[in-house]
Protein backbone atom coordinates (compact mmCIF):
# COMPACT_ATOMS: atom_id res chain seq x y z
CA UNK A 1 0.00 0.00 0.00
CA UNK A 2 2.92 2.25 0.69
CA UNK A 3 3.76 2.32 -2.99
CA UNK A 4 0.25 3.31 -4.01
CA UNK A 5 0.13 6.02 -1.37
CA UNK A 6 3.48 7.23 -2.55
CA UNK A 7 2.29 7.41 -6.14
CA UNK A 8 -0.84 9.23 -5.12
CA UNK A 9 0.79 12.62 -4.78
CA UNK A 10 0.56 15.74 -6.84
CA UNK A 11 4.22 15.74 -7.79
CA UNK A 12 5.76 13.69 -10.60
CA UNK A 13 7.03 10.32 -9.49
CA UNK A 14 10.42 8.80 -9.97
CA UNK A 15 11.29 5.17 -9.55
CA UNK A 16 14.95 4.38 -9.52
CA UNK A 17 16.06 1.03 -10.91
CA UNK A 18 18.55 -0.31 -13.36
CA UNK A 19 17.65 -0.55 -17.02
CA UNK A 20 18.25 -4.28 -16.93
CA UNK A 21 15.87 -4.80 -14.05
CA UNK A 22 13.14 -2.76 -15.71
CA UNK A 23 13.59 -4.55 -19.01
CA UNK A 24 13.71 -8.01 -17.48
CA UNK A 25 10.74 -7.25 -15.27
CA UNK A 26 8.73 -6.33 -18.30
CA UNK A 27 9.87 -9.28 -20.38
CA UNK A 28 9.51 -11.80 -17.60
CA UNK A 29 5.96 -10.84 -16.77
CA UNK A 30 4.63 -10.87 -20.28
CA UNK A 31 5.96 -14.08 -21.77
CA UNK A 32 4.16 -14.92 -24.99
CA UNK A 33 4.22 -18.68 -25.39
CA UNK A 34 4.13 -20.39 -28.75
CA UNK A 35 1.62 -23.25 -28.78
CA UNK A 36 3.76 -26.09 -29.98
CA UNK A 37 1.12 -28.60 -28.94
CA UNK A 38 2.07 -31.97 -30.36
CA UNK A 39 0.43 -34.67 -28.29
CA UNK A 40 -1.09 -35.47 -24.91
CA UNK A 41 0.77 -32.68 -23.10
CA UNK A 42 -0.96 -30.13 -25.31
CA UNK A 43 -4.22 -30.90 -23.53
CA UNK A 44 -2.64 -30.12 -20.17
CA UNK A 45 -1.18 -26.97 -21.72
CA UNK A 46 -4.69 -25.89 -22.74
CA UNK A 47 -5.85 -26.73 -19.20
CA UNK A 48 -3.16 -24.44 -17.84
CA UNK A 49 -4.47 -21.69 -20.06
CA UNK A 50 -8.15 -22.28 -19.28
CA UNK A 51 -10.47 -21.61 -16.39
CA UNK A 52 -9.04 -23.22 -13.29
CA UNK A 53 -5.29 -22.83 -13.68
CA UNK A 54 -5.46 -19.57 -15.57
CA UNK A 55 -1.97 -18.92 -16.83
CA UNK A 56 -2.97 -15.23 -17.18
CA UNK A 57 -2.06 -14.83 -13.53
CA UNK A 58 1.54 -15.09 -14.68
CA UNK A 59 1.15 -12.84 -17.67
CA UNK A 60 1.35 -15.60 -20.25
CA UNK A 61 -2.19 -15.96 -21.48
CA UNK A 62 -1.31 -14.71 -24.95
CA UNK A 63 -0.78 -18.06 -26.63
CA UNK A 64 0.44 -17.30 -30.12
CA UNK A 65 -0.08 -19.64 -33.05
CA UNK A 66 2.79 -17.99 -34.91
CA UNK A 67 6.46 -18.35 -33.94
CA UNK A 68 7.22 -14.83 -35.10
CA UNK A 69 5.17 -13.29 -32.31
CA UNK A 70 6.33 -15.35 -29.39
CA UNK A 71 9.34 -15.69 -27.15
CA UNK A 72 8.76 -18.97 -25.35
CA UNK A 73 8.32 -22.22 -27.19
CA UNK A 74 6.54 -24.85 -25.12
CA UNK A 75 7.24 -28.12 -26.87
CA UNK A 76 4.39 -30.19 -25.48
CA UNK A 77 4.45 -33.74 -26.70
CA UNK A 78 6.30 -36.37 -28.66
CA UNK A 79 8.54 -35.15 -31.45
CA UNK A 80 8.86 -37.68 -34.23
CA UNK A 81 11.56 -37.70 -36.88
CA UNK A 82 8.98 -36.52 -39.37
CA UNK A 83 8.19 -33.53 -37.16
CA UNK A 84 11.74 -32.85 -36.00
CA UNK A 85 12.78 -30.62 -38.88
CA UNK A 86 9.56 -28.62 -38.58
CA UNK A 87 10.19 -28.02 -34.89
CA UNK A 88 13.66 -26.77 -35.70
CA UNK A 89 12.36 -24.56 -38.47
CA UNK A 90 9.75 -23.04 -36.19
CA UNK A 91 12.37 -22.44 -33.55
CA UNK A 92 14.51 -20.61 -36.07
CA UNK A 93 11.56 -18.41 -36.99
CA UNK A 94 11.20 -17.11 -33.44
CA UNK A 95 12.74 -13.70 -32.72
CA UNK A 96 15.63 -13.42 -30.25
CA UNK A 97 15.87 -13.65 -27.29
CA UNK A 98 13.94 -16.91 -27.24
CA UNK A 99 13.38 -19.65 -24.73
CA UNK A 100 12.38 -23.27 -25.03
CA UNK A 101 10.53 -25.40 -22.53
CA UNK A 102 10.50 -29.17 -22.98
CA UNK A 103 7.18 -30.26 -21.51
CA UNK A 104 6.69 -33.91 -20.68
CA UNK A 105 8.89 -36.98 -20.78
CA UNK A 106 8.55 -37.36 -24.54
CA UNK A 107 10.00 -33.95 -25.30
CA UNK A 108 12.71 -34.48 -22.69
CA UNK A 109 13.92 -37.95 -23.65
CA UNK A 110 11.37 -39.78 -25.76
CA UNK A 111 9.68 -41.00 -22.59
CA UNK A 112 7.51 -44.05 -22.93
CA UNK A 113 8.06 -44.06 -26.69
CA UNK A 114 11.86 -44.05 -26.49
CA UNK A 115 12.00 -47.60 -27.89
CA UNK A 116 10.17 -46.61 -31.01
CA UNK A 117 11.60 -46.45 -34.52
CA UNK A 118 10.13 -43.06 -35.29
CA UNK A 119 10.51 -40.98 -32.14
CA UNK A 120 13.23 -38.43 -31.47
CA UNK A 121 14.72 -39.03 -28.03
CA UNK A 122 14.57 -35.55 -26.63
CA UNK A 123 14.26 -32.23 -28.40
CA UNK A 124 17.57 -31.05 -26.94
CA UNK A 125 19.14 -33.00 -29.80
CA UNK A 126 17.88 -30.39 -32.25
CA UNK A 127 17.25 -27.18 -30.29
CA UNK A 128 18.63 -25.76 -27.02
CA UNK A 129 16.30 -26.22 -24.08
CA UNK A 130 16.04 -23.85 -21.12
CA UNK A 131 13.58 -25.58 -18.82
CA UNK A 132 12.56 -29.22 -18.55
CA UNK A 133 9.13 -29.98 -17.07
CA UNK A 134 8.93 -33.69 -16.26
CA UNK A 135 5.75 -35.74 -16.11
CA UNK A 136 3.65 -37.85 -18.39
CA UNK A 137 1.84 -35.59 -18.83
CA UNK A 138 2.92 -32.88 -16.35
CA UNK A 139 0.06 -31.39 -14.40
CA UNK A 140 -0.81 -27.79 -15.24
CA UNK A 141 0.70 -26.82 -11.87
CA UNK A 142 4.00 -28.24 -13.05
CA UNK A 143 3.79 -26.25 -16.24
CA UNK A 144 3.19 -23.08 -14.23
CA UNK A 145 6.21 -23.95 -12.13
CA UNK A 146 8.23 -24.33 -15.30
CA UNK A 147 7.00 -20.99 -16.51
CA UNK A 148 8.17 -19.38 -13.29
CA UNK A 149 11.58 -20.92 -13.80
CA UNK A 150 11.71 -19.35 -17.26
CA UNK A 151 10.77 -16.02 -15.73
CA UNK A 152 13.48 -16.43 -13.12
CA UNK A 153 15.99 -17.07 -15.86
CA UNK A 154 14.82 -14.02 -17.78
CA UNK A 155 15.14 -11.81 -14.75
CA UNK A 156 18.81 -12.70 -14.27
CA UNK A 157 19.90 -11.65 -17.71
CA UNK A 158 22.30 -8.79 -18.36
CA UNK A 159 22.67 -6.27 -21.13
CA UNK A 160 26.46 -6.12 -20.83
CA UNK A 161 28.03 -8.04 -23.68
CA UNK A 162 30.89 -9.46 -21.65
CA UNK A 163 28.61 -10.79 -18.94
CA UNK A 164 28.06 -14.52 -18.45
CA UNK A 165 24.38 -13.93 -18.55
CA UNK A 166 24.32 -11.73 -21.63
CA UNK A 167 20.79 -11.65 -22.93
CA UNK A 168 21.73 -12.91 -26.39
CA UNK A 169 24.45 -15.29 -25.26
CA UNK A 170 24.50 -18.42 -27.33
CA UNK A 171 21.82 -17.14 -29.63
Amino acid sequence: MGLIDGLNTKDDNILITSLEAALNWGRGNSVWPFTMGLACCAIEMICAGASRYDIARFGSEVFRPSPRQSDLMIVAGTVTYKMAMRVKKLYEQMPDPKYVMAMGSCAISGGIHADSYSVLRGIDKIIPVDVYVPGCPPRPDALLDGLMLVQKKMKQEKLRKNSDRFILAGK
Binding site: A84, D115, I126
Partner: peptide
Amino acid sequence: LDPAVNLRNIKEREDEMLKKI
Protein backbone atom coordinates in the same frame (compact mmCIF):
# COMPACT_ATOMS: atom_id res chain seq x y z
CA LEU B 1 12.82 -53.64 -32.38
CA ASP B 2 14.70 -55.00 -29.43
CA PRO B 3 14.98 -52.44 -26.63
CA ALA B 4 18.40 -53.79 -25.70
CA VAL B 5 19.70 -53.46 -29.25
CA ASN B 6 17.96 -50.17 -29.61
CA LEU B 7 19.51 -48.60 -26.55
CA ARG B 8 22.96 -49.70 -27.62
CA ASN B 9 22.65 -48.35 -31.13
CA ILE B 10 20.56 -45.39 -30.20
CA LYS B 11 23.13 -42.82 -31.24
CA GLU B 12 23.96 -44.31 -34.63
CA ARG B 13 20.33 -44.94 -35.46
CA GLU B 14 19.42 -41.41 -34.60
CA ASP B 15 22.26 -39.87 -36.58
CA GLU B 16 21.40 -42.02 -39.54
CA MET B 17 17.73 -41.10 -39.33
CA LEU B 18 18.34 -37.37 -38.94
CA LYS B 19 20.84 -37.40 -41.78
CA LYS B 20 18.32 -39.10 -44.03
CA ILE B 21 15.61 -36.59 -43.22
